[in-house]
Amino acid sequence: MNPQERPLWNPYVAGAFLGLVLLATYLLMGFGLGSSAAVTRVAVAGAHAVAPAAIENNGYLGAYVSSGAPILEDWMVFEVIGVFLGGLLGAYTGGRLKKGVDRGPRIGVGGRLGLALAGGVLMGFAARLARGCTSGQALTGGAALAVGSWVFMFAVFAGGYALAPLVRRQWR
C-alpha cells in the first residue's frame, strides 16, 4: 500500500454525503445526477464529426443533433466534467492517484482491458435501453421513488450476481 494513501470514508458516511449532493441537485435543478447520457453525447459528437449523415438520419441518435445546438453543450456533460474533477481531487488527496490497471491476481493486463471494453459496450447499450444507468436511473430515480428505477436497480443487482461466477477469475 502506498504510504501516502489515506483510508476511504466509512461507506455510510460517503453514501450520506453523496445523498446530500443528490438532494442539492434536486433542490436546485428539479432533476438528478447522471453520467451515461454525457458519455453518449461524447460518442455522438465524435461519430457526428466522422459521419454526419449517418447520425442525423438515425432514428434514435438523430435526436441528439436535431436541435442544432452544440452536441456537448448539455447539463450532463458539464456535470461529468465535474465528476472527473471531483474524482481527481478525491483520488489525489487520498493518495490513491496512481497510473495502473485495476485487476485481480489471476488475469493479465490485456485480458482485463478486453473485459473492461466488453463490459463497457454492454453497459452503453443497456443504459440507452433502460433510459439511464446506475447514476441516472437507480440512484436518481430511486431517490425520487420512481417505481421503474427501483425495478431497474434490482435488475442490475440480479444481472451482476448472475454473471459474477463466470468472471470470478478476473477479480479474485
Binding site: 453520467s35 473492461a116 443504459a127 433502460a130 436497480m153 435488475a155 442490475v156
Partner: peptide
C-alpha cells in the same frame, strides 16, 4: 428497464465499473 438493468448489471461485473464510476 428490467432487461436493460439486467444487461447493465452484467456489464458492471464484466467491466468492473458503471459509467459514472468509470469516470472516477
Amino acid at each position: 428497464q428490467i432487461v436493460g438493468g439486467f444487461v447493465l448489471g452484467a456489464g458492471f461485473i464484466v467491466s468492473g465499473y458503471c459509467p459514472g464510476t468509470a469516470v472516477v
